[in-house]
């Protein structure tokens, strides 16, 4: 059952992302990306990361994608397809395929070695994903969390300054 769901989700994610990069219209691309995000959110659920899956839907699908759509519609640019030079087009694809191939080859002969963390399956059962996530985020990663908030603030100010009419 688990495998079936995984393969379905993986299939959806791959196909929709392929469509995303091949659509001519940016609006279509954005919508295909939405589908990809949902599929990835499903994958997150399967990986026992329910909280992250929720954020994925909320932030990515809800906020960022809407932002993209806003910009696309605001600018309404002429439709631009792929880069004009066919040769570069081909080598771009080939290079990507080579990299993916190389990574997959690496995976084939790899195994997981590493020190296991404190999140034992029983603990996960007892506490639940969100509680553990919060514990980790607000203890060990408190300072990076604050920095991330400052980063977002700066990005907000920067975006306003840049996009403001002058």
């Amino acid at each position: 059952m688990e495998q079936v769901i995984f393969y379905i989700l993986a299939f959806v994610a791959i196909v929709s992302s392929l469509f995303m990069i091949t659509r001519n219209s940016p609006v279509h691309s954005a919508l295909w990306m939405l589908l990809t995000f949902f599929a990835v959110a499903g994958i997150f659920v399967q990986l026992d990361a329910e909280f992250v899956a929720a954020i994925q839907v909320l932030v990515y699908a809800g906020a960022i994608l809407v932002l993209y759509l806003f910009v696309v519609m605001l600018l309404n640019p002429k439709s631009h397809g792929f880069i004009k030079v066919p040769f570069r087009y081909v080598i771009g694809v080939v290079a990507s395929i080579i990299i993916v191939f190389q990574v997959l080859m690496t995976l084939k002969s790899s195994e997981v070695i590493g020190k296991l963390g404190w999140v034992t399956p029983q603990l996960a059962q007892e506490l639940g994903n969100v509680k553990m996530f919060g514990k980790e985020l607000f203890t060990t990663y408190l300072v990076p969390f604050e920095i991330a908030s400052i980063l977002l603030l700066i990005a907000m100010i920067g975006a306003i300054v840049l996009a403001k009419k002058d």
């Binding site: 932030v59 990076p144 990005a155 920067g158």
Partner: peptide, 23 residues
């Protein structure tokens, strides 16, 4: 790896992605 920090990192990546998208 039975660890939580990977998920925490996802949140940070998302924060950065949001900032990057905005700018």
């Amino acid at each position: 790896l039975h660890a939580m920090n990977g998920q925490v990192f996802i949140v940070f990546v998302m924060a950065v992605a949001a900032a990057e998208a905005a700018v």
